[in-house]
Design a protein around this nucleic acid. Structure first.
Lengths: 155, 155
DNA sequence: TATTGTTATACTCTATAACTATA
DNA sequence: TATAGTTATAGAGTATAACAATA
């Protein structure tokens, strides 16, 4: 690389924190932090081949057996059709099964399959490691502050 | 709806904050907050048809004329191929143009087209409104705290 | 050898619209 | 009328692998 080319490259920072205007944009930092956390998550889950959304859904089905798709969509702030696609994938992989509610025959009741239970068990271990990495960057007080501030945005 | 069905639905909360185990997961709150902010962003930008990433790239090209794709990828923590796809879309819409660097002929120099400049101008106005909504949920002190905490994750 | 850009490919998430069945 | 699920469709972002041109 020539000196000239190096000089040109040095004009450009490597971090958004050095771009004064963009550094003020809260939405930018949320998006970048989310992307960083997501990448770390996907590395931790590379052998399980599960995404954040997939784990969250399995977890909710375990916690609330018989929960309907609409309920999950409300909690996770997702579209019905979007959730449908994810549940389809989890059903294909035999992680959960659909059934009809007897009380309201419009509703589906979702339940974990044995494979889904096993997978969720492994996922929880991976999540703990991932969360340790995440929380390790903060004091306990900062963790609570961060969660409290983020909740204001999504609640 | 029957009383029975109502009772069944009431067992399931409508907010992640009511699911004790999941409420402890920092990554969950980051993802949900990001999704909420992204949805609001997309509403603000519905007439412009621009995503967060597209605006960020246009903004960086304006701030650093002649910046290379690799530089942008580093700042925004993106894959080269991913950035390629987004730049292609922006080029198709005549928002930016590629050129070859004379100093290092491997590198592309990116520049804003007139349409891109006009669009970025409108985008900045929409961003200000979006950021007002976002920042309006916090005191100035909280804004700084939130940015500082998020930076630790992505920097 | 390393870097930059490129193409091909594939997957996930996301959303809209329109439809069926049920309440 | 409203709700729950479904299907079709489309677009955006993400990543991997392999390749060419250049350093």
């Amino acid at each position: 690389m020539t000196d000239h080319a190096q000089a040109a490259a040095l004009d450009v920072p490597a971090d958004i924190g050095d771009v004064a205007e963009l550094d003020e944009i809260v939405g930018m930092h949320i998006a970048l932090a989310n992307a960083a956390a997501y990448r770390h998550f996907m590395e931790s889950f590379s052998d399980l081949e599960l995404t954040q959304k997939q784990v969250a859904i399995l977890w909710l089905v375990e916690t609330y057996p018989g929960i309907a798709q609409t309920d999950i969509a409300k909690i996770l702030r997702m579209d019905r059709a979007t959730l449908m696609a994810i549940v389809n994938r989890l059903e294909t992989r035999k992680y959960l099964a659909r059934g009809r509610s007897t009380a309201d025959r419009r509703r589906q009741t979702l339940a974990l399959c044995p494979d889904g239970e096993a997978m969720l068990g492994r996922a929880k271990i991976a999540i703990r490691e991932h969360e340790d990495w995440l929380k390790g960057q903060f004091t306990e007080r900062e963790q609570k502050t961060l969660i409290e501030l983020l909740k204001r945005i999504h609640s």
